[in-house]
Structures are given as structure tokens and as C-alpha cells.
Simulated assay, not measured.
Amino acid sequence: MKINREMVTRAGLKLLNEIGLEQLTLRRLGVELEVQAATIYWHFKSKEALLDEMATTVLTEGAANLVPRRRSGDWKVWASTYGEGLRKTLMAYRDGGRMVSGTKLTTTAPLKTTERIAAVLVGAGFSVRGAVVLLSTINYYTQSFVMEEQAVFPTPGERSPLYEIADRDAQLDAAEFPNHRQASGILFDRFDRRYKEGLELIVRGAELEIARKRAKRR
């Protein structure tokens, strides 16, 4: 069978959902596509190169998640939507957070959306540096959060035995670690709520900072 670069990338994303990032190899992809490993290596010289292309595909196709569905001039809506949309995009694939983290874009397509978001921030009074710092902070927070979330729930709705809350609490003396025992349910459950709370802290901090700078210029 004759294959091309896109076919390999799509097969890689499909296999990622089936076996996870650790088991995904170019040789395993060759088996999946019923071609010799050399054929896969013709298109991608390494697993890292394949992951770069897979991540770029995921981010490009998830770009619509990063901007508000309804027209809004509120920069806070744009910043929050960027974070929530990125999380949704990464969560669409098994190990999506780890897969995207540390990769390099192979095209500028995903940058068109972040350029649009940055323009809204600059229009609202952010400097370019301020917009970059805010969006990169949201990006890092979201990727790290998703990696932790997917460690607890490798597949949606199925908690890893390593993160059973009752087992963790049983190892913590209630008198010595009262706060840690209460933290278990916060750290390892109800991720939607905690993500929004963390994102709100970032956006609120940016709001206070931009208000401070405006007041200083007066």
C-alpha cells in the first residue's frame, strides 16, 4: 500500500488513542499500516518528528475551540476561552497533554488563531509582551494540568489505580496531615471545577496588573 505523510500522522493519532504515548513507535505504526518500517522512516526520521506533526495537526484542527463562539470584545472572555479550548483540544486524545508538550510546530497554521487572540489583548491595552506572558502562562498551566489530569484518568471515566483517593487517604494520618487528606478530593477529582478556578486566578491577576498600569499612566 502506498502511504503519504498525512496517512502516517492520522494513523499515529489513532494508535495514540489505542495504546498510549509510551507504546507508540514508528515500527508499531508500520505494523498498523501494513508497511515496512523503512517506509515510515521515509516520511518521519524519528518519533519526535512524528509527534511534531501529530501535535501540529491536533492544534490546527482544534483552533476553533480557542476563540469565543459568540462575538465578544471582552479580553477576559478571549483569554478564558483560549485556556478552556486548549484543554478541550488536548483532552480529545489519550496522552494529549504529554504528546503536545515540548513539540515544535511544522506549519504556522495554529499561530493564526493565537495571533487573533493576541490582537484582542493588545487592543484592550496589553503590550505585546504582556499579551505573550498571559497567553504563554495559560498555555503552560493548561498543558501541565492536562498531563496531570490524564495521569489520573488515562481514559475518560476510568481512574488509574495509582490515584484512588481512599487508598491515598489511608496512608495519611488524620492528625498529622489534616489538610492533605482534604486535598485528595480536590487534587484528584472534579478536574473541570479546579481547572476553571486556576484559570480564573490567572486571568484575574492579569486584570489587576493591567488596571495597575493604567492607573500609573494617569
Rank of each mutant, 00 (worst) to 15 (best):
N4A: 05
T106V: 15
D52V: 02
A131G: 13
H43M: 12
D52K: 03
R28K: 14
K213D: 10
P161Y: 00
A215N: 01
H180M: 13
G130E: 15
T103P: 03
G123E: 01
V203N: 02
P68W: 04
A183F: 10
A183C: 04
T9D: 05
G125L: 07
A206I: 01
E207P: 04
K45F: 11
V128D: 11
E164G: 14
Y140T: 07
R193D: 13
P68K: 13
K213S: 07
A170R: 10
A109P: 08
V120C: 09
E34A: 10
R27F: 01
F126L: 00
E149P: 02
E164Y: 08
R27P: 00
E149L: 04
L201C: 03
F188D: 01
M54V: 05
G20N: 07
V67A: 08
T56G: 01
R218N: 05
G12S: 13
V203E: 03
A63E: 14
T137G: 12
T56R: 02
E148A: 08
R10W: 00
Q182C: 12
Q150D: 05
F44L: 05
M91S: 12
R28C: 02
L50W: 03
T113G: 06
R193G: 07
D95R: 09
Y141R: 11
R71L: 15
A215I: 07
G20H: 03
G102M: 08
M54P: 11
F188Q: 02
A11M: 08
D192R: 12
G83A: 14
V67M: 11
L15K: 13
R194Q: 12
W42P: 08
T57A: 13
T113V: 14
E164S: 11
R94K: 06
R28L: 11
T89M: 01
R129I: 15
V35L: 07
L66K: 11
R116Y: 01
E48G: 10
V35R: 13
G123A: 11
G96E: 02
Q182M: 13
N4F: 04
